[in-house]
Amino acid sequence: MRPFSFIYYILSVVLYILALPLLISLSFKQKYKESIPSRFFLFNNPRFKNSNGIWFHVCSLGESRALKPILDSIDKENVKITTITQTGQNEAKKYGVDLRYLPYEMFLPFWIKPQKMVVVLEAEFWYMLFAVVAARGGKVVLLNARISDKSVKKYMKMGWFYRRLLANVDKIFCQSEIDAFRFETLGAKDIEIVGNIKLAQKIESTKEYEKPDITTIVAASTHDGEEKVVLEGYKEYIKNNAAKLIVVPRHPERFEAVYKILVEFCNQNSLHVNRFSEDKSLSTEIVLVDMMGELNNIYKISDIAVLGGAFKEDVGGHNPLEPAHFGCKIITGKHFHDQKELFKYVHHVQYIENDELCNALEEAQNLPPSSVDEQIDLDRVIKYIES
């Protein structure tokens, strides 16, 4: 092991020891009860069965879904996938391949078997992962690679570290010209711009629900604090307009907390709320979708999508392609930095401050549905992976 890698490894061990009490505590939370024991204690997370395969590593749900067009085009016989989150793991199970959680870096030198290639999506930059795969003769490929506007200063300040990390990378397929420039600045080689592979996803609904006969607004993938922003805008809007509100929180562990917020709001404003899991008739003014996998089905019957994750600074926005595909008129906040590349391809989107939602809902009546201008060159990626 090289001196830098040895020092990095020792620091990872020290950090692990210091974090043990927190890791044990988080293991009991519903959100992490599977991922943390697997990643940090190797519980039910053995090494891959075979060597010399193609290994895809993704973080969460969106990246797991983005793999589908690629996996549909290659031989999956010796494909493996690792994820970080439980939602990503659940999505990746659909592919029927050898599936694991990515262990914490301290375990990787003992856990990784030699592979032909590891394909890492977006910004999952793990030094030990890259170093160990490269040391054992495998190629390291970055796919859908990006360095966001919010993160670029951090990357440049830590340029000495990222130059070492990127020295182990054989190929980078990045999202945009600005991403390519940033990787070049950090010393990366062999970079190609292919666009965002999420544009290649097949977007479809899985169930049919009857569309309400009034304007239907979906608050999609909301985070803590964003439901209140939506409810305030909705409250003002329905003073002069008839509309139904469907709320779809991003994380299932928040269903109960969001339901309490909606009940309190309805009690104060003489409205009614139902849980979608109990009543799918959409008969009340407000509906909480407390089930996973329903968002596309809800987009399909909605007129306006208030896309969450961008009304607070620490999330970075969510994928606008799905509501645009179903013809929703999209409204989102101004903190969409992690999805800026995708929003470039979506037309007729309103970007608003938190107190502007009512006006945006009014304006949506005069706007055409959002639409997507698809631009992606996936063939080059597939040819490289198969070579």
Rank of each mutant, 00 (worst) to 15 (best):
F4M: 03
F6K: 15
F6L: 14
Y9T: 01
L11P: 00
A19Y: 14
L23N: 02
F28Q: 04
I36H: 10
N44C: 06
N52S: 09
V58E: 01
L61K: 06
K68C: 01
L71S: 07
L71Q: 07
I74D: 06
N78L: 01
Q86N: 14
A92N: 04
G96W: 08
D98S: 08
L102S: 01
M106A: 14
M106Y: 15
F107L: 02
L108C: 03
W111S: 02
M117N: 04
W126F: 12
V132R: 12
G138Q: 07
V140C: 13
K154C: 03
K157Q: 10
R164S: 06
K171H: 10
C174S: 09
S176Q: 11
A180N: 03
G195H: 09
S205N: 11
K211C: 03
I214E: 14
I217H: 12
H223K: 09
I238E: 06
R254H: 13
R254I: 01
V258C: 10
K260P: 00
L271A: 15
T284C: 08
T284M: 05
M292S: 07
G293E: 06
L295W: 10
L295H: 11
N297V: 01
I298K: 13
Y299R: 08
I304P: 01
G308R: 13
K312S: 14
N319A: 03
N319P: 00
P320S: 07
H337W: 15
D338F: 06
V349C: 08
Q365F: 14
S370T: 06
V372K: 11
D377P: 00
Y384S: 05
